[in-house]
Simulated scan of single mutants.
Amino acid sequence: MLEASSTHRRSAYLNALTQEIEKKLQRALASPSQRRNLLQELFTDVALEIDDRARDIILSKEECMIYSAVDGANGQLCFYDVLADYYVRVPESGNHILDLIVHLWSQSFASHIFALLFHKWLFEVQIDSNEVLLRYSSALVQGATNVFWIDIQANTRRFQSLFRYLFEEVALEHKQINKIPGQVQRDLLLLLSRFIIFYNSADKLESFLKQFPVFPNAFLVGSPADFFVIELTDQLQKLKVEPVLLHYLSQIRVLQGMELRMATSTRLKACLYSFTSPGGPMYPTRAVRHAAWDALDFLYPVGQYPRHLISLFFRLLYPWYWPSSCWNFIMSCIKAVVYTLLGWVFSSWEKLRERTNS
């Protein structure tokens, strides 16, 4: 009896949320001047983290454990997570929302909302029309691209569950990814290639590359590994958030040993090298420069000393960088000496304590 009451309350709550989403979409459709603001507001609401009170209403204890296991890395459970599952279990509940979104396709944030609410529905519900399937799957890729970049700009992982579903449940499952048209499959795989490192899924990179279909220009570009590295290189050049760029540079070591075409390898090397020098066009910080050097030396150990000598020579051509370089060198030396002395003191103290105890 208690379980039935809890289920009814949960269903009523989700139905109420659905009605609120419908109302905001209807208002956006009826108010062209306020349309963008209303859709942005709705997107923000859907992406909100669920508070404890709402979590107790929406989820059972078993569901809480499941969501915690799936999303334990960042500890966030958002409304779109629960609503996406709800529209799979009860597909007819989202039909009106879907119709309204279709009328708002060309508007900002419409694809964002569709990707969050219907990314699971698209792969679980039968769609007979190829034209409709192409429209929906293309909107999914566009919306996912936009929301992942929102995470990049804010250096958060709010949409990590969306990425994990598309990566683990779709891209790595041959049956699932074949449900969408071939061109969209390729677009989705290239999209995921750009964000695998950001969402800490590089451990499944080998399995992911095996899922790549034959691309039309594969003869010119190369293997799936080449496609992946090209997308990753383009992503690195677009990143402007320092912590995110540092994360990419620290994790890019997974590329070690990967067989690449000479053109792809040169492209990656040139990209990393562009982050090693101060000034334009990248203007990397000192932390980024050192991270880029570490990645470059790790992936391309042959020729690392000549690279550093050439870099030093060019640094000498810009006298205005000398004071900061000298200061950083002196501070690094001081830190090294201090850490060495502290290590010696602690080791001596440990040896003295062992002798005393014995």
Rank of each mutant, 00 (worst) to 15 (best):
V88P: 00
Q34K: 11
R9Y: 09
E231A: 11
C326Y: 09
S193L: 02
P278Q: 06
G72I: 15
V88M: 03
G75W: 04
P281S: 09
Q26E: 15
D187T: 12
N37H: 13
P243Y: 06
L342N: 12
R315E: 09
D71V: 02
K23L: 14
R307H: 11
F195A: 07
L122H: 03
R267K: 14
G280V: 09
L236A: 05
F215A: 11
L220F: 15
A139W: 05
S31E: 15
S347Q: 12
H112Q: 08
V241Q: 06
A84W: 02
L341R: 06
F212I: 03
V221K: 11
H112K: 08
D81F: 01
M331K: 14
F212V: 06
A69E: 07
R89K: 13
Q142V: 04
W105G: 00
I180G: 00
E131T: 12
L317V: 01
L316E: 14
D234Y: 04
H96E: 12
L162D: 13
A69L: 05
K351Y: 15
L29S: 12
Y136E: 10
F43T: 04
Q183S: 10
Y339G: 05
V88L: 02
P301S: 04
V184Q: 10
T156R: 14
A336N: 14
I330F: 14
F123P: 01
L77H: 01
A336R: 09
S207H: 07
G72A: 10
D56I: 01
F123C: 05
N74G: 14
L312S: 15
V214A: 09
Y339K: 10
K351V: 13
K24N: 11
H112T: 00
V338E: 07
L352M: 08
S108N: 04
Y67N: 09
I150C: 01
D99L: 13
S138L: 13
W320H: 11
P32K: 03
D234Q: 13
L236R: 02
L117E: 03
Y300C: 06
I330G: 06
D45G: 04
A225R: 11
L140R: 03
A292W: 01
F298D: 00
I66A: 12
E20Y: 10
S348E: 13
R53E: 13
R10M: 12
E49C: 08
Y80D: 11
A292H: 07
F275Y: 12
R158K: 09
W293D: 03
S5P: 00
L140A: 05
Q251N: 15
S223L: 02
F298H: 07
Y321N: 12
Y165A: 02
Q304L: 06
E206D: 14
R55F: 02
A30L: 09
Y339L: 15
L17N: 06
V170D: 02
W293A: 00
G72Q: 06
F313T: 13
R353P: 02
D203L: 04
A54I: 11
T156D: 10
P181M: 01
V125Y: 05
D52F: 04
R35D: 08
L133I: 00
C78D: 11
